[in-house]
Design a protein around this nucleic acid. Sequence first.
RNA 1: GUGGCUAUAGCUCAGUUGGUUAGAGCGCCAGAUUGUGGAUCUGGAGGUCGCGGGUUCGAGCCCCGUUAGCCACCCCA
Length: 443
Amino acid sequence: MSELITPQTLKGFRDYLPTAMLVREKLTDIARQVYRSYGFSPIDTPALEYANILLGKGGDESDKQLFRFIDSGERDVALRFDLTVPFARFAAEHSAELGVPFKRYHLGLVWRGEKPQKGRYREFMQCDFDTIGTTSNAADIETLLVIHDLLVKIGFERFTIRVNNRLVLNGLLDKLGLTGQTAGVLRALDKLAKIGRDGVIGEMTEKVGTTAEQAASVLDLAGLKGSNTEILDRLESLLVGSEIGLLGVSRLRELCQVAVTAGVPEERVQLDVSIARGLDYYTGTIYETFLTDLPGIGSVCSGGRYDNLAALFTKEKLPGVGASLGLDRLLAAMEELGLVAQTSTPAQVLVVCFDGDRIGDYCRIGRVLRQSGISTEVFPDAKKVGQQFKYADRKGFRIALVAGSNEFAKGVWQVKDLKSTQQAEVPEADLVSHIQGILAQSI
RNA sequence: GUGGCUAUAGCUCAGUUGGUUAGAGCGCCAGAUUGUGGAUCUGGAGGUCGCGGGUUCGAGCCCCGUUAGCCACCCCA
């Protein structure tokens, strides 16, 4: 007698049941579709990298969160904690074959050994897209458009993409004499929404070492209110004499204007000087996307511009801009907002097994429907019709097909729309078009 | 990584100051005179109370450890 092993998943790792997986796949399909529609090409990289490729790229914090071990060949290896660092390695390794500009998307799992919470897991999926090899603001603008289209396609209407530019922040900090402390100041500033004005001042004076006056000035600048244009005008006057600061302002100004011209509703793009992003490698435009109905879950799609993605791997300069959709965080949000469908089958039609001797006919009609792109499941047992209908209903089938001796004699099928409860007797020749008609009616 | 809260049926929970065979709702399975589901009614299955140790005559309830979930910090998708 052997002891039973407790079936359990690792802390922060999860199983996905069909209901959850169907939604996940729907989102990844949408992401692929949107990325490809802008000309981004797919790539993939290994889950494991040499540890030295990944170490030191996201600061001490991400080093501590690495799943790192020695493999059986004595190699020091680690699981990737994002898709950007592997992309840097990839770009350096293959730059000669890629040509510029190079646009890629990459959907993949990443791993971080941090403490799990709602919407934060140790294994989660990121959906990245980046454009490298150009410093043009057009790429920054396109990044904004992709983020926007992505959320709209997924079904969100109420969200804002907050944008900022590191150049503006750096220019402002230079003017205040805080050039050397940018990282700490930005990190504190990034928490404004969470810990409030006094909290940020406290952190800046105690942990970063600024004076209270400097901290207050930073906050005044970061807290600028008004329309995007008003903020930009104000920043412009504050940054007189700072070349980089003014460059940042002009890039942001163009970003905001062009987004509107391109058809993005104005209220969805919000200039916010307090958005700083924790990651050190951003140098230009910064994006963070918040759901209006659930801001507390954090940014669901973030990114920015970097001057030199692969500086540690190659002497070639590879500037770029991109962003990452946090699929699992977005799913956690959708679940909390009640936006996830409860179906647990990918099929649309269930063929009821009414007569066990007619399995051949049921399988045949299934193939006919599939050839027209209608996914169809044939019930395997000649159970009571009521039970089969119940099964169809629970799993979320849209249509049930029934045929017994009466129907076979007439060459027809009973087609029941499980949603409207309408049933029709349809000649086999018209079956495909009839079903397509039902499926075309809303969701 | 630091600090805290929680852990009882598939899910959401009840279980009185430790006291005999641990409950409910929902869900699941099966029926309600054998060709139609989401309603109602009837019946049924399902728990060694997360796991391991300890205290006690006796532990779901107290103590310690462990695993997992959640919350705050940290950081971030």
